[in-house]
Design a binder for these strands. Structure first.
Length: 648
DNA sequence: ATTAGGG
DNA sequence: CCCTAAT
């Protein structure tokens, strides 16, 4: 078949590498919500939320668990008294294979702060997965507390019992954002299946995956490969969550001059973790073959003292502190990068420290007479619009988005080496992700997961963005490790907004953009794209491949890469003819330089000699006669060049 | 779709 | 490896 440039380099599935998450401050302000489109996100959220949740509430033991018969699921609650019976029951009664947990409706708590709360997706069918959101609401912070959503298997009757609640809540406008949020139904998508086991007991649950033992949590989630369909649905309904009435007098403009939210991760170190504070996250991808070949065991470690956490989240907004791992030095001896196959016993760990996720720029417009409270809600809605629209987590290495979700961290070069400091994460509202309106309203249209559809609303918002934002393009991603340092120099989105705002809109309120958000930089068009069209992961040619290439070129010459491809790499989908051409180019270069200057896996000198020979031969040949060298195979030797000239 | 080259 | 121009 044909080799597309990026043919097959994308893996349909992927394993979510873990994402650590964290501490309370994070939970409180980090809206990590997602919707649909890719399991990755879900995974991320899940991991993040759960990890954070558990970590924080670690001390508050939870108790109930899958008492409900065969249920594999369990219930997670932070505080027993907070668990809402009805919900719990629903979950348990069902024969649910899944599980989730959660529970607790915020409004139910009088004294205590609600910690977790879950909603199932509306159209939840038996056996289908439910969407669960977790929310941590604390006093005044409720507007920015919205955080995560979990996607899990839903119990059979979970739906029914919850629907009522949802509907009811939705109507009562008076319940405020909190309720609305809680009750918000997202018909969508659940592309990730998560089985969470949260036994607060010593024994793990019988079947899958989420276990908590002390502070250890295991998550098992899988990624569905059919996301786009759901994506579409989601988009279509995303607005459901907002009250049209309210919106009538209020325009929320989301100025996402940046569509991506940068996260500043701090990779400290790798280590063979083992700590009582660790939260191992176990994930596996549901492969079509049903094998569990892809399993990653990740660890999220909670830092005892978040030294750097303090001021970071003080500004409100959605920054979510995440887990920090103190670099535990002395743990050398881990050279995972080169020993990809020998990791049976000791699995190297890659540690991440994500400083925070920040909310992108928001553009809010409300009447002067609006109350502070309404402003808050407006902001919240704007935020929720984004969140509900779906979130993606992008992982960038050296500024380049890593597209192959299936690759292991190791394969991606995210082991313990130098690459770690160039790794960064970003949150992007998927609904705003660049993508033509093509998908809207057309459930059948193919919306690549990488290019989610967006709701009409978001489209509208985007137009505003387009008109008022001048920095929309060519803004570089600020490397995670530079975020803090760049705060002062970062441009102020607010300024831009103000300048571009229409004169008559007195009501416009530039959302206070905290300095923190300055760290969130819009990505350039180029980078945006790369988020979806990732640079392929590097795949050094093996000596064997080189040999095959050399041989083919010797016979076919240097101008027939397609033929070379067909002949020697026909079954190597990841090697395009362009790759072969490029490789040849580098081989020639390599052959010319001194061995000391060469890098990577050494290519036998013999091959390099042949490279030079073939190169010389075909260079001559090419000039002397245009393309009809099919005559014979070139036997490369030191004399090849001469022979060439003779032949010609 | 391929090639050829620069980045 | 990517990107582009030129075929």
């Amino acid at each position: 078949m044909v080799f597309k440039k990026r043919a097959n380099n994308g893996f349909t599935g992927f394993q979510v590498p873990v994402i650590p998450r964290a501490p309370r401050s994070a939970r409180r302000r980090g809206p990590l919500n997602k919707t649909v489109d890719d399991g990755q996100v879900c995974a991320f959220e899940i991991l993040a939320s759960i990890a954070g949740k558990l970590l924080e509430e670690g001390e508050s033991s939870a108790s109930s668990n899958a008492s409900g018969g065969n249920s594999e699921g369990i219930i997670v609650k932070n505080r027993e008294d907070e668990v809402k019976p009805s919900v719990t029951e629903g979950i348990h009664q069902g024969s649910c294979r899944g599980s989730i947990f959660t529970t607790e409706v915020a409004s139910q708590n009088r004294d205590q702060k609600p910690i977790l709360h879950a909603n199932s997706d509306f159209p939840l069918e038996k056996g289908e997965r439910a969407n669960v959101k977790t929310e941590n609401i604390e006093s005044d912070d409720k507007y920015v507390n919205y955080s995560n959503r979990l996607v899990v298997d839903a119990p059979e009757n979970f739906r029914e019992s919850y629907n009522r609640k949802i509907k009811k809540g939705y109507r009562s406008d008076k319940c405020g954002l909190k309720d609305r949020l809680e009750l918000y139904m997202s018909p969508s998508l659940v592309d990730s299946k998560v089985n969470v086991k949260y036994p607060f007991h010593r024994k793990p649950f019988p079947t899958d995956s989420f276990t908590k033992d002390g502070n250890d949590i295991k998550l098992d989630f899988r990624d569905d490969d059919e996301n786009f369909i759901r994506c579409t649905k989601v988009c279509a309904k995303s607005k459901t969550f907002r009250s049209p009435r309210r919106m009538a007098h209020r325009r929320i403009k989301n100025l996402l001059s940046s569509k991506y939210w940068n996260v500043a991760p701090k990779l400290k170190d790798c280590e063979l973790s083992r700590s009582d504070l660790e939260v191992p996250l176990y994930s596996k991808r549901k492969t079509s073959h049903g094998s569990d070949k892809s399993r990653h065991n990740t660890t999220v470690k909670r830092r005892k003292f978040f030294d750097r956490v303090s001021g970071v989240t003080s500004d409100g907004g959605f920054s979510s502190e995440s887990v920090s791992n103190s670099p535990e030095k002395g743990n050398d001896g881990h050279k995972p990068s080169s020993s990809a196959k020998l990791q049976v016993t000791e699995e190297s760990r890659v540690k991440f420290s994500i400083n925070s996720f920040r909310i992108p720029e928001l553009y809010i417009e409300v009447p002067e007479t609006a109350t502070v409270g309404s402003l808050k809600r407006t902001v919240m809605e704007a935020v929720m619009a984004i969140i509900e629209g779906g979130m993606h987590v992008g992982v960038l290495l050296q500024g380049e988005a890593i597209g192959d979700d299936n690759r292991t961290l190791e394969q991606t070069g995210l082991s313990c080496n130098e690459n770690l400091d160039t790794l960064s994460f970003m949150l992007e509202p998927s609904s705003l992700v660049a993508s033509p309106v093509s998908c809207i309203g057309d459930p059948s249209s193919q919306c690549d997961t990488s290019e989610p559809t967006r709701s009409p609303e978001t489209l509208a918002l985007e137009s505003v963005i387009t008109d008022t934002t001048v920095h929309d393009s060519n803004l570089p991603i600020i490397p995670a490790n530079l975020v803090e340092n760049n705060r002062d120099s970062a441009y102020s989105p607010t300024d831009t907004i103000v300048d571009k705002i229409t004169p008559d809109s007195k009501a416009i309120v530039a959302l206070p953009v905290s300095t923190e958000s300055l760290a969130m930089v819009p990505l350039s068009q180029k980078i945006k794209r790369s988020e979806f069209v990732h640079r392929r992961t590097r795949r050094p040619f093996s000596v064997t491949e080189v040999e095959a290439l050399v041989h083919a070129v010797e016979e076919l010459g240097t101008g027939r890469w397609r033929d070379v491809k067909l002949r020697a790499f026909d079954n190597a989908d990841h090697r395009t003819y362009v790759d072969l051409k490029d490789k040849w180019k580098t081989l020639v270069h390599t052959a010319k330089i001194s061995p000391q200057q060469r890098r990577g896996e050494p290519v036998p000198q013999e091959l390099l000699d042949r490279v030079l020979g073939a190169h010389a031969y075909w260079s001559q040949h090419q000039i002397k006669q245009h393309g009809k060298h099919q005559g014979g195979t070139l036997k490369i030797t030191e004399a090849s060049a001469e022979r060439v000239s003779i032949q010609v």
